[in-house]
Design a binder for these strands. Structure first.
Lengths: 200, 200
DNA sequence: TCATATATTGAACACTCATTCAATATTATA
DNA sequence: TATAATATTGAATGAGTGTTCAATATATGA
C-alpha cells in the first residue's frame, strides 16, 4: 500500500476541481479555492500536481473518462451478448441521464483548450476515435447493415450527435428541447434506414 | 460628431481583446494586457467598459457579428436575385475562408459561457435562430423542395455543420481534414436529396 | 472666448493568483 | 525501534487581477 493515500488524494483533488468548475466555471477555479473546498492548504494540492497545467490536464483525463463511462453499459452488453441494437444505442446517446452524469459547461471549457494545446487536442481526438470505432463495431454486427461503410456511417451519426448537443445546450424550454431531441434522433434513424435501403 | 471617438475607441478595444484572446486565450487576456497592447492605461479601457463582464459581453456581440458577416454575400445574393442555390450555400458553409476570418478557439471559449450566463445563452440562440431562418428562406425558394418541411431540413443541415466543425477542429492532418469535409458535405447533400425524393 | 463635456493619464487599492520553502507530522520499511 | 520516505502544514513571495479616483488634457457648444 505504497501510493494509496497519494492516489486517493489525487482523485479527491481532481473531483473537487471538477465540482468547483461545474459550479463557478473552469476559469474561476483556483488552487486556493480547491484547497479551501477540501480543507487542505494549497501547497498540498501542489504537492500532488506540481503546476496548474498538470492539474488541468488531469482534470481533462478525468472528464474524458467520465464521458466514456456513459457508454460502459452498452460496451459490456456488446461484449457479453456479442450484439447490440443500434437504435437502442442511439436512444441512449440522446437520453437524459447523460446530462445528469455530465456537465457540458466544463466539457466545452476544456474542449476550447484544444486550440492552444496540442496534447489536449490529441486526447480529445483519441476519445472520439474510440467512440466512433465502438459504434462501428455495433453497426458491423447488425445484419441489416451488411457490406455497408459502417465507418462512414458511424462518423455521420456522431456528427449529428455532437451538433445536436451543441444546439440543445442553448435551449431552456423543456418542450422545445424534447421536440428537438426527437428530430435529431429521427435524423440518425434516417441515416440507418438510408443505408439499409442501399443494401436492399 | 459626438460619440465618434468613443465609438472608435470601443471598437479598437474590442478588436484588441479579440486579437489577444485569439493569441493567448480568452481566460489569459486581462484589461491591463489589452491596454498595453493598445498603448493606453487600463483605466481608459474601463472608462468605456465599466466592468469586465460588460467587456466580455461586447466581445461576444462582436464575435457573433463576425460570424454573421460570413453569410453576408449569400444574404445579398438572395435579396437581389431572389434565389440562391442551396448547394452553393452548403459549400460556402464548409469553405476554408471561414477559418481564416474566424477563430474557433475564441468562439468555443465564449460558447462555454452560455452555461453560466443566461444573457450570453440568449445571444447565441438568437444568432443560430437567425441563421436557420435564413437557410429556410433559401430552401423555400428552391423548386425541388416544394411543400417540404424546410424548417426541419434547415435544422438538420445546421446540426451536421456544427457537429462537423466540432470534429474538424480536432484534426491536424490536412488530407484527413479534407476527406472529412467532403464526407460531411455529402451528408448534407443527402439530406437535400432525400427530401427531393419524398417530393417525387 | 469661456464653460462644459469628454478623453486620457497615472498612481493607488485590496485581493487573488500560482508557486516556493522550510518545518513538522505521519507512515512504511529495514 | 531506528531510518527513510511520504504526507501535511503554514507562512511567505512577487506578479497580476479588476477596479477606483483625482488630476489633466483635449475637444465641443454657447
Amino acid at each position: 500500500m505504497k501510493g494509496k493515500i497519494s492516489a486517493e488524494r489525487k482523485k479527491e483533488i481532481i473531483e473537487g476541481f471538477y465540482y468547483l468548475s461545474k459550479e463557478n466555471g473552469l476559469e474561476n477555479t483556483s488552487i486556493a479555492k480547491i484547497g479551501k473546498h477540501l480543507g487542505i492548504p494549497p501547497s498540498l494540492v501542489m504537492h500532488y500536481f506540481p503546476t496548474k497545467d498538470i492539474l488541468i490536464s488531469n482534470l481533462i483525463s478525468y472528464i474524458l473518462d467520465q464521458y466514456l463511462k456513459i457508454y460502459e453499459p452498452v460496451i459490456k452488453e456488446l461484449e457479453t451478448k456479442n450484439h447490440a441494437d443500434p437504435k437502442t444505442f442511439v436512444d441512449s446517446l440522446f437520453s437524459r441521464e447523460w446530462n445528469l452524469l455530465f456537465d457540458d459547461g466544463v466539457f466545452y471549457s476544456c474542449y476550447a483548450l484544444i486550440f492552444r494545446n496540442d496534447v489536449i487536442k490529441k486526447e480529445y481526438r483519441k476519445l472520439h476515435d474510440r467512440l466512433r470505432e465502438f459504434l462501428k463495431e455495433i453497426l458491423d454486427r447488425d445484419e441489416s447493415l451488411k457490406n455497408q461503410d459502417t465507418q462512414l456511417l458511424a462518423e455521420q451519426i456522431f456528427v449529428v450527435v455532437e451538433g445536436a448537443y451543441y444546439y440543445l445546450s442553448m435551449i431552456d424550454n423543456e418542450d422545445t428541447y424534447n421536440k428537438k431531441v426527437e428530430n435529431f434522433k429521427e435524423q440518425v434513424y434516417d441515416l440507418l434506414r438510408k443505408k439499409e435501403e442501399q443494401h436492399l
